[in-house]
Design a protein around this nucleic acid. Structure first.
Lengths: 336, 336
DNA sequence: TTGTACGCGTTATCAT
DNA sequence: ATGATAACGCGTACAA
């Protein structure tokens, strides 16, 4: 009922009355083919419905033109956005995305390594890791394989692997400054996943500026970058006798949860009773009910840099390790 | 500095002192290998850091164990969720996901076909299309190629292609009934992208029940499934002298936007002044500021069915076309 | 410019 | 159970 035999170069060559090489060259941009043969080949190809086989091509060229993209979770609105931009940017450079979403597992440290073996078997030309905790073993393995890796907002477990990250430390500083300038006196922090790079750095910058300003941290709770975790953290911090009047929440996804909780459960208003500063700058659809002061991660810049570093790593076999830091800035969102 | 030559079957065979076939069989589950040779091979493989080449395997087996997943936009919270589940489900069946996110383009009809050629060249074993408008040409092409396709919430442009969809028509009916039962008398509709299957069917069911109940549609505006579009639509509908007292919004992403607009710009409260019913049942982080009555699309069921239909299409070459409809239900979310 | 011939890493077939 | 050998579809020296 449906044709099953794939059409190959050879088929086209036969019909066009030329050699396989001629056909191959016709489909290779910048090869030397006579105009006349090119046309004959293209006609034949069109008649047969020929489609080049990228897999076979990979075998000979040793380049799959596939990039493995690994992401830990899609909870926050931020990573789907990054993935979308990344996919489009890579495609415009002729690369496809082999997507890998790690399972949610309880134990902080996933066994990503084993699972990733599958992706590596597909001979990806490069790897982008999005905010996953990457083991030393994996990093070493990629290095020995010679596959360029770019860590996006991940901690590098070893030297010699490229990374791109927002200036999370500076973001933490900005958050602290904003709360202090707003006149807050009891400033608390709601943390993300404890060993995540974003969490660690944002907290560091935050505490640094707090310290330099002679302000003591009023309270701390862990939200684990999850909605429910943040709700619990908010309750924990705010159902005591004297509650904080300012909270830096490690990302917007949690910040929304905190604001929800303050308003609905505790009858508090933001920012009158408690000022909130988040991180990421997620789309308006997420914060518009409240307005939100947040530290913006520039997704576009992040992606552009990542692609640049990755492609550079790919075609220069010398694998020059690069570490790029993308600036962040404070954004004040008004609820319209 | 880094080893560049890939380790192949041959290398392992040499070191182990066996033939390539022996090595191949060792890595082929359910092949007949003597325990002794298996161990020797595994040892050799481990010493060399051998990793089977999935690309080469694809060439001979004619099965890439890759599934192309195509999605139009990541705006709504719903599709990232579906993609996550889909990716995990497929991986558990030994398949990888080749992701394709179509560019946002102005002209309703994208030239998806051309772009998708690239994905097809990678010899994907199957294709999942998520809510994209798929052209007749593309559908025919897949049929002739013999690549199983499952349309998830897409309209089928031709017979003979499998599809899985939520019961969008019934969802529309449920929405109408909910508004009518709530005592609404001036019921309006905010539409999604005009030619999208979800839009068309939800509207059909909605109007059907409205008609059967003798209720006339009070107003209609188009939100194009976008946040800003929905805001405009809400203004358009509600800044007239007599405004609707109930609105069915074609998805939650827009419903949030509508509620934002009603509250902030028009000073109206939901559901006292205007009752809202959405569609999708996105995570709490999206609706918790308001609470939201919505029609739930069961992402888990949708994905399970899709995977089942797809895999069935893959290993039975006869390609039995299936059309599955996943039930929906009304959900009333309370703002806590 | 064009064609021939070989190799890419693996599986499949067929002897042994 | 094991080993030689031929595909798989394409790129690419090399020769013509």
């Amino acid at each position: 009922m449906t044709s099953q035999k794939p059409i190959t170069l050879r088929d086209v060559a036969l019909l066009a009355g030329v050699s396989q090489s001629a056909v191959s060259r016709t489909f290779t941009p910048g090869a030397s083919v006579a105009a006349t043969t090119r046309i004959r080949v293209q006609d034949a190809a069109r008649m047969l419905g020929y489609r080049p086989n990228a897999i076979a091509r990979t075998l000979t060229t040793r380049r799959s033109r596939m990039i493995g993209v690994v992401v830990s979770y899609m909870q926050s609105q931020f990573y789907p956005l990054v993935i979308e931009k990344l996919s489009q940017a890579l495609r415009h450079h002729g690369y496809q995305v082999l997507l890998f979403i790690s399972d949610r597992n309880e134990s902080g440290r996933p066994d990503l390594d084993d699972k990733l073996q599958d992706v590596m078997q597909y001979q990806v030309d490069g790897l982008v890791l999005l905010s996953v905790t990457v083991s030393l073993a994996l990093a070493l393995e990629c290095q020995s394989t010679g596959v360029p890796v770019v860590l996006l907002n991940c901690e590098a477990p070893v030297n010699g692997v490229s990374s791109v990250a927002s200036d999370n430390v500076e973001g933490g500083r900005l958050a602290a400054r904003a709360l202090i300038d707003a006149g807050c006196r009891r400033i608390a922090y709601i943390a993300g996943v404890e060993n995540a790079l974003t969490q660690i750095e944002r907290q560091r910058g935050f505490l640094q500026t707090l310290g330099q300003s002679g302000v003591e941290l009023f309270g701390r709770a862990v939200g684990n970058y999850s909605y429910d975790g943040a709700r619990r953290a908010a309750r924990e911090l705010c159902t005591v006798h004297t509650r904080p009047d300012g909270i830096f929440v490690a990302n917007d996804h949690m910040a929304i949860a905190v604001m929800d909780t303050l308003r609905s459960e505790l009858g508090l208003s933001v920012p009158q009773d408690v000022a909130i500063v988040g991180f990421d700058n997620v789309p308006q659809s997420a914060w518009s009910a409240y307005g939100l002061t947040t530290i913006e991660q520039d997704a576009g810049q992040l992606v552009r840099t990542t692609v640049e570093v990755l492609l550079q790593g790919i075609d220069s076999q010398s694998l020059p390790t690069r570490e790029a830091i993308v600036p962040v800035r404070l954004i004040r969102r008004q609820t319209v």
